[in-house]
Amino acid sequence: MTSPQIAQPGQNLVPPPALQNRQTSHTLADTSTAPLFNDNSTSFNSDQVQQIAHMAVQKVVGAENMVYKLDKVNQWCQDITDTVTIELAKLQKPFKYAVTCIIAENKGTVLHTAATAYWETKKDGLISVQLGSDSFYCIVTIFSSSV
């Protein structure tokens, strides 16, 4: 019971949103109602992140009859990574994000990717989303590392 009281004066100083979230989640966890407030939790939510990645890819290259174009790919790549990072930042969770996007022309060739990380496996998360069309495929990888 003492910890929320200590947290109170700190909130008067208006900490950054990420810190505010963290404090509320601590008090929620103490009352064991944490699962009800999953959206406020500061932990990595892979579903949420995956959805964001999906949405961003659909928004930029999801339209039908999209064909790989050399002069457009640069813009697509930038748009996808931008949208993903902005949406992730809006979650206001105490994470740092690194987003990579690969758009490769589909000519029947193979592309292999592997990702490894040296981090806290319990807190941090890695999400990879792959979507493809007849003309190209798109792989978005999101590393989120807790602060």
Partner: peptide, 24 residues
């Protein structure tokens, strides 16, 4: 913390574009 991603593909003249953006 170190995060590493490796991409290998067949070089047959197809186009590949990789971009990244970070929030940190």
């Amino acid at each position: 913390k170190y995060l590493v991603q490796v991409i290998i593909g067949h070089n047959s003249g197809q186009g590949v574009r990789v971009g990244s953006r970070c929030f940190w």
